[in-house]
């Protein structure tokens, strides 16, 4: 299935901004995070199609996954 992955802030360093990729059915957010070599401790929020998800969330064809480190502002 086709997934668009978007990375932000420090996660872009040495990786990419946006990438469309084929993943096997049943791929979870956790497995993509692992493939990207992002340590779990550095994770802030993950959004799939603009909704917050947990690491064990299973992705569907056509999803957009956005991965952020812990961020703040205001």
């Amino acid at each position: 299935m086709n997934i668009t992955v978007k990375l932000f802030a420090t996660f872009r360093t040495g990786r990419f901004v946006t990438q469309e990729c084929e993943y096997p059915e049943g791929t979870t957010v956790a497995s993509i995070v692992e493939t990207l070599g992002i340590p779990e401790n550095d994770l802030g929020i993950m959004l799939v199609n603009s909704r917050h998800v947990a690491l064990n969330h299973k992705l569907s064809n056509g999803d957009t996954l956005a991965i952020f480190p812990l961020l703040g502002g205001g």
Partner: peptide
């Protein structure tokens, strides 16, 4: 800076 939020809020 605080503007790191543009992408976060937009994605959300």
């Amino acid at each position: 800076g605080t503007n790191v939020l543009t992408n976060v809020l937009n994605e959300a």
